[in-house]
């Protein structure tokens, strides 16, 4: 299973994501440069966190026009596995590969802290190594993470079980307090209808070894490894 980590100007979790996939999950991993038109034969594309293009205009808004994103769009359209973490999630929303948009956090603060997210759907290519209801401890670090979708879209997302993770407390209970950024329906992670594209605000690569305080992010990376 070959992973490709996309590097935009301003990406700052690309090295961490690369390290988690190559050295911890032990999968062949390569960097993909945003100006190229070549996915290098990877089986999975990961859009890492950071501040692509300084997050000018809107988070992820400029990165979606990067040359490589044409290939990522085609790759996703053919059913290829695409994961967007934090800024990567914002890019997927701007690109329209996932429904909705991000607003500024409800308290207008940049939030950098551990949060708890609950697995809502374990029948996905991103979570089948986990269990429905399982609570993962994974950190967030974002300014624009308050998920928004118009009411009709939100209804569709829920109906199609596209919500993969919700913010909860450590026991898996929903509350306004646990929904730190004010996301609609406490949505922390979301996939497309086909199930091959997922975005999430928390950083699994920052919760991938004991030294970092949590290994819970490995549930996601390990689920994504499919035997060739």
């Amino acid at each position: 299973m070959k992973f490709g980590v996309v590097v935009f100007p301003g990406s700052n979790c690309d090295f961490d994501t690369f390290y988690a996939l190559k050295d911890i999950v032990k999968q062949p991993t390569t960097y993909l440069w945003h100006k190229d038109h070549d996915l290098g034969g990877v089986d999975c594309v990961v859009l890492p966190g950071g501040f692509s293009y300084g997050d000018y205009l809107r988070s992820g808004a400029i990165a979606r026009f990067s040359p490589l994103m044409q290939e990522v769009q085609e790759f996703a359209d053919k059913g290829g596995l695409v994961l967007g973490i934090c800024n990567g999630f914002q890019v997927l929303l701007e690109l329209g590969l996932l429904p909705g948009a991000m607003l500024r956090n409800k308290n207008l603060k940049f939030l950098c802290q551990f949060v708890h997210i609950r697995v809502e759907n374990d029948k996905t290519g991103f979570t089948h190594k986990g269990k429905k209801g399982q609570v993962l401890k994974i950190p967030i670090a974002h300014f624009d993470g308050s998920y928004y979708a118009p009411p009709d879209v939100l209804k569709e997302i829920e109906k199609n079980k596209q919500v993969v993770f919700r913010y909860t407390d450590e026991k898996g209970r929903l509350s306004e307090e646990a929904n730190v950024n004010g996301s609609l329906n406490c949505i922390a992670g979301l996939m497309n209808r086909r199930g091959n594209v997922m975005g999430l605000m928390p950083h699994p690569e920052r919760a991938s070894e004991a030294l970092l305080g949590s290994c819970d992010g490995l549930v996601i990376f390990k689920s994504m490894i499919v035997k060739q």
């Binding site: 205009l57 809107r58 928004y148 979708a149 118009p150």
Partner: peptide, 8 residues
């Protein structure tokens, strides 16, 4: 296409 995100 660029300046506004029509969703929000």
């Amino acid at each position: 296409k660029v300046l506004a995100n029509p969703i929000i």
